[in-house]
Design a protein around this nucleic acid. Structure first.
Lengths: 190, 190
DNA sequence: GGCATTTTGTGATAATTGTCACACCATTTT
DNA sequence: AAAATGGTGTGACAATTATCACAAAATGCC
C-alpha cells in the first residue's frame, strides 16, 4: 500500500514506521482521467500530489493559448508551491496528461501530522528542497543554452518526456514555437 | 542584533524568543567585499546566506564567459539549494555584486538547532518554499514572455534590480545578448 | 472501414536576436 | 595629462525564430 511513496520518502529522510502511520490520515489515493484538472486557475492549492502512474502538466492560459510551464512524472511531487504555501489563488492550471494515479496530501491534515511527528516535517522540507532544485535546473536551461541545446538536455536527462509528451505541449515548455521545435527535431536526425 | 532576520523569519512562521535563542549558535555575521566569492564552483555549499545589505549573484562559467543565473538582494536567502541539500559539488559560483553584509547559517549547527526547536524546522521549510516559488516565477518568465516582456516584468516587480545590476550582468540573466538588452531598453523609452 | 479531430511537418516571409566591430563615456591608474 | 579599464550604445550583417498557411500523418470515434 502506497509502496512507492514510502520508498520515495525514505530516500529523502529517515522515517520510522510510527511516523509513516501518523502520516496516513493525511493521504488519499485518487484516480484522475486524462485532461481532467487537479488544480484550476483562481483556486487555492490545498494539496500535494505524489504521482504513482501517469503524468500531469501545469499550464497558463494566455490569449486562449495554453503555455505549459511544468511536467511531473512518476515519483514526482506536483503542486503549486506558491499557492500552497501562501494561500493565494493559483495563476495556472494543473491537468492530467495521461490517466493518473496520485496520492493526495491534504494540507491541513499534513500540518497536524507534522506536529505529531517531526520526521514528517523534515521529509516535507526535503521534498520542497528537491522541488526547488528542479525548478532552478529548468530555469537555468534558458540562461545557459539555446533552444536546440535545451531539447538535447531534456533528451538526455528526461528521455521519457519526449516519448510521452506531445510536441505541441513540449514546445511552450521549451519556450519556442511548435513549428520551430518540429524543425529542430527533424534537423537533429540528419 | 540580527533585527532584519528576526522580522523576516517571523513573517514566515511563528518563532518564540526561546527558539530564536536556540538558533543563535548557528548564525554568524560576515562582511564580504565586492566581487569576492561566497561559493566556488566545485565546492559543497555548507551555508545559507541571509542578506542584510548589498546583493550577490550566482553565475556559471562557460567558455570563459559568466552567465548569471540568479540575483539576491536585501532580505533574500541566497544559497545553492541543490548542493546544500544533496552534499554534491556546486556547478556555479556565488559572488558579491556590492559590498555585502550577510548572516551565515551553518548547515550542521542549523540541523542541531532544528532538532531542539521544531519551530526552526518549520521556519526553514517556509524559507525553502519561498525560494522554490521565486525560482518557479523566474523560470516561467521565459515560457510566458518575450525578452522585451521579461525586462518589463523585472522592471515592475524588482525595479531596484535595474538600478543596481550592470546591464551586462542582467543580460545573461534575461537570456539575451548584452547588445540586445541595450536595444530593448533604448526602444522602450521612445 | 470511413470520417472527424488532433497532431505534426514544411514552405515562405517577416521579425527578432546574435555576433562582430568600434565609438563613447566615466573612472581609475600611472 | 595620458593611458588603461569597465560599462554601455550602435551599425551592419548573419543566424535564428515567429508567424501564417496549408499539407500530411496519426488518432479516436461511429
Amino acid at each position: 500500500m502506497m509502496h512507492h511513496l514510502l520508498t520515495y520518502l525514505r530516500s529523502l529522510a529517515s522515517l520510522s514506521d510510527e511516523s509513516w502511520q501518523l502520516l496516513q490520515p493525511a493521504l488519499k489515493r485518487k484516480h484522475v482521467a486524462k485532461n481532467e484538472l487537479l488544480l484550476k486557475e483562481g483556486a487555492v492549492c490545498q494539496s500535494l500530489y505524489f504521482i504513482e502512474k501517469g503524468y500531469c502538466r501545469s499550464y497558463h492560459l494566455a490569449d486562449g493559448l495554453e503555455k505549459n510551464t511544468g511536467f511531473f512524472f512518476e515519483n514526482d511531487m506536483a503542486t503549486n508551491i506558491s499557492s500552497f504555501g501562501s494561500g493565494l489563488p493559483s495563476e495556472y492550471f494543473i491537468a492530467a496528461g495521461e490517466p493518473l494515479e496520485v496520492i493526495v496530501f491534504d494540507k491541513q491534515l499534513l500540518q497536524e501530522a507534522g506536529k505529531k511527528a517531526p520526521e514528517i516535517e523534515t521529509a516535507g522540507r526535503c521534498c520542497i528542497r528537491l522541488f526547488a532544485a528542479k525548478q532552478e535546473a529548468f530555469s537555468n536551461l534558458f540562461r545557459l543554452y539555446t533552444a536546440k541545446e535545451r531539447l538535447a538536455a531534456i533528451e538526455e536527462r528526461y528521455p521519457f518526456m519526449l516519448q510521452r509528451v506531445p510536441l505541441t505541449q513540449l514546445a511552450s515548455f521549451l519556450g519556442v514555437a511548435r513549428e520551430t521545435l518540429s524543425r529542430i527535431r527533424s534537423r537533429r536526425v540528419l
